[in-house]
Nucleic acid binder design. Sequence first.
DNA 1: TAGAAATTTGTAAACGCTTAAAAATAATTG
DNA 2: CAATTATTTTTAAGCGTTTACAAATTTCTA
Lengths: 332, 332
Amino acid sequence: MKMTMKEIAKLANVSQSTVSRVINGNTGVNEESAKRVLDVIDKVGFIPNKAAQTLKRSHSHIIGVCITETYNPYFIELIDQLESQARKHGYNILLHNSNHNPIQEWESVQNFISRQVDGMIIVPTGDYNVERISKLSTPSVVITQNRKFLDSVGLDHALAGKIVAEKFIHSGHKSFGFIGTEPDDKYFGYRMALNENGMKLKEENYVQLEESSTNNILMRRDIESYLNQVGNIIDFTCAFAANDIMALEFINAAKDRGISVPEDLNIIGFDDTYLAKIMGISSIHQPIEEMVTTTFELLLNRMENEVSSKPVQIKLKPTLIERNSSNLVRVP
Amino acid sequence: MKMTMKEIAKLANVSQSTVSRVINGNTGVNEESAKRVLDVIDKVGFIPNKAAQTLKRSHSHIIGVCITETYNPYFIELIDQLESQARKHGYNILLHNSNHNPIQEWESVQNFISRQVDGMIIVPTGDYNVERISKLSTPSVVITQNRKFLDSVGLDHALAGKIVAEKFIHSGHKSFGFIGTEPDDKYFGYRMALNENGMKLKEENYVQLEESSTNNILMRRDIESYLNQVGNIIDFTCAFAANDIMALEFINAAKDRGISVPEDLNIIGFDDTYLAKIMGISSIHQPIEEMVTTTFELLLNRMENEVSSKPVQIKLKPTLIERNSSNLVRVP
DNA sequence: TAGAAATTTGTAAACGCTTAAAAATAATTG
DNA sequence: CAATTATTTTTAAGCGTTTACAAATTTCTA
């Protein structure tokens, strides 16, 4: 049932190379024999073997994608964009999930190489592998904040922190919180902007979640334990959460203890996923479509033009989408 | 920089076939030459070309996965399981999204074939392509309710409907609603169980959403328009929603009009995604991990044993996870 | 209408690997 | 130690394409 070009050739009474020519756009093949070939092809249903094509042409039209998790809906929107834009450019996606594990990430990269991917798009687990990835001959771009070794596209997280800080200050808040895992650019940008405005982010107002609490049960547990620790008294009237899930979980946990949002507490999330949209949570918008478009521009450029210029770092501007959770009602 | 076996062979002073043997598990190759080869390999960093392997061995160790959408978080958990279980079995995932479009779905299948995938896992757009897929020589299994032409694994949706109906009846409800797109097995199972218990699902209590409202803005709009149509008077005290997003959106829309859940209205969703978990929505649990495990059992069996027995249909049992949204408080 | 030019077709090598079969080498045995 | 047998290595063909090059056919030109 699985046909090869050779058999098509025989059936159509032409040589294999003619069949090949017909398939790849007809250059210099007579109308009539082309038609004969096409007829045979669609009668017997021939589909060319891309493994052979890849071997011969030495490119696969596959792009390897490695992300770090799927729990955060942000990644889903990313996958979605990646898949559809790749298709638009004639590429397929080989999808891997590193689960934040650098070893798994490196294995994925090796796998990509062995599959002769034409390019890689990686949401890195950290800085562990980026340098050696940059040494590879396969072009890659990284979706994240600045990485010096590779083309990268990401959001200006520090600016995001600043925007949130200023929004809170402007609303009249005086005490501030932060909800997240390890301190990152968002956090530093936020804190710095507060300082610049004569405000302070107190140590004890950092609701720190375990890096590994990548699933909601653990995340909620971390939040509960914070709230217990402070005796259910939240010292801040507004907080910036490192992603929408955290924002939502915190809102829920607070609500269970009689603290309501936005009346007693303002919250701004991050990513602007559909979670935020559905639940009316203010959030920093990540322009995912634009990020992916840019990613492909960089990648296709390297792939098609074999350029080996200095890596370029693209930082997109965050915007604050205001919804109900940061509507000052009576807080300060 | 990209090495081939030939070059490794030269560097290690052996023939190509020896290199090949070393790579594929050493059978009948002398310790010493094996070591020499291995040394060269890890010095120069050789990674075998899988396109060539695929061509020669005529299998790719790739499984093609085609889903219908990514908006519903259910699919994400599915992708996640699919990817990790595939990897566990030594396969990679080529991911496509048909966006509910049968034409795109068929293109994906063709693409899979041309890439010599060893198997396909498909969440079908409907019945459009299943028959011709079953005619292909590549084994496939479909994740959905019963399909006669292919191995399939899915939940017993009718039973899910029945479980929900009985739960509502048992709680003392007298008037029932349904929120979903087109009528499906869930709906029929729900309605039938109601009838069997002397209850009725009124036509006007079917909150019908557009099939295409696959993104939240449209879904919310459909709900709003239903509520406006009935003058904000909801005639039912409990409703079964075809997925968790619909459940959540309906709860939010109702809440905005002063109808609160579970006090005035009980809601049970479907899929038991993390949305339901985070928001405390009762939901019919889809045992995704088990579904995927079963899927791989079926697929690997066909792939490895080349069996061509009758397609088997596996129907898993749904379970109701009760949370706050169906806690009877004062409704009937 | 012969010869040149243009078009169409076919032949064969190559892409990087695996593997059956042949060849070379080493180990065993009477 | 020659003959067998067992082990290790190499040779070469082939997987299904693409493509440079040569060969054949058609079309044009004087």
